[in-house]
Design a protein around this nucleic acid. Structure first.
Lengths: 209, 209
DNA sequence: CTAAAGATAGTAATTAGTCACTATCTTTTC
DNA sequence: GAAAAGATAGTGACTAATTACTATCTTTAG
């Protein structure tokens, strides 16, 4: 069960190892500073050998984004599974997302890094697709919640979904900044509590008009 | 008032122009992809000439971060000025921040880009200082709001401040992703409304325990 | 006339990607 | 069932382009 130094791996296995190496590196390195040489070194391979398994660097990035998208979505969907209340489902998704990121700090960095770029790479379009799918999932939940009376009808769906994702992104950014991934796990419940009250609460509290 | 092509600018003026050129470029380019050559080209100067005014690239980035920190903080403080209610002040700050970013999309990109990096540059420590100052300002407002009864005492200050900043960062990220800075301005009021209810609302709404 | 600002033309280091060759595994054939 | 043949994986040295940065010459402004 130990991580033994493997040689002559079959192609697909080697590609998987490569993706993990990149996620690993991205935990401590700015994605755009990750060189093919660094990737190769981290997996104890020569730089040239990488190109036996990927046509170019962009293909590596694409594979990484696919990995992130698949793992993250499946994790989130699994967390929401079986929960009857949409609000409870959203909370479970929120915490699952945070947990995933704190286990793989490199994942959000790759995502943000890719989205930040100007040119329309294929990796970028994968990242966009992920966010879109996420937003749709949330919209469904919010709609169901409204129909069940768990959320007020006056609630702005768009804003609620934006804030849900934005809140996570904000937490992630602040953890990246402090360099402490546990901070995120600590802050998550309290932050979500505020979000939940924000969308559930109908009254406009105090207003002086 | 027109942007006339200036030559032989005095040193300080040239440095200002340089900073603006970088912010400009950062609006469409990943900060770590911005080369000294690109900066020079954008301000119609030769690359070598840049180093007459900055000892190295890091010094340029430092100047940029200083620019961002000063302009952003002064803008936010001005927005909150004269507002008696802390909650109103927070809303004004929120909207001012969003407005600033939508006018200078390059600013947050430089900030995030710098914070993302592993190594401890001076530009990075400026960025950290900015966020810290911001958080303290928020904390003061929240405390005052509590003492005036505008916010409930049970509210978690830390979480509220985190979410305030996080919400903005999230909005920024999503605008960067869609490439449409106006999206941010459109979403901001609705999103802040939810945040405001979230911190102001004491009741736990519906809970099934 | 001189000092500051810019142009020109470099440098050394680093980057993604290539290539001829070697090592190892898998399949075929008798 | 073992040797031959082919396929697959990895090596190490290379390249062309790009990078931040520098040295030297030229222009301009006061």
């Amino acid at each position: 069960m130990e991580k033994i130094r493997q040689k002559n791996l079959p192609a697909e296995e080697r590609r998987n190892v490569t993706v993990e190496a990149v996620i690993d590196l991205a935990a401590t390195t700015n994605p755009s500073d990750i060189t093919t040489a660094a990737i190769a070194k981290h997996m104890k391979l020569t730089q040239g050998a990488l190109f036996r398994h990927f046509p170019n660097k962009e293909a590596i990035w694409q594979a990484v984004m696919k990995w992130v998208a698949e793992r993250l979505m499946s994790r989130i969907e699994k967390a929401a599974e079986g929960l009857d209340s949409p609000l409870e489902a959203m909370q479970a998704m929120f915490l699952a997302h945070i947990a995933f990121v704190s286990e793989h700090p490199g994942a959000p960095r790759m995502l943000f890094g890719e989205l930040q770029g100007a040119k329309a790479t294929q990796a970028k379009s994968l990242a966009r697709a992920l966010l879109k799918q996420y937003a749709e999932l949330l919209n469904e939940l919010i709609k169901t919640a409204k129909s069940r009376g768990e959320l007020p009808h006056e609630l702005d769906n768009q804003a609620a979904a934006t804030l849900f994702i934005g809140t996570i992104q904000g937490l992630v950014m602040q953890s990246l900044i402090s360099g402490d991934m546990d901070q995120m796990r600590r802050d998550a419940p309290g932050v979500f509590a505020i979000y939940r009250r924000g969308i559930a609460c109908t009254g406009t509290a105090k207003r002086d008009e």
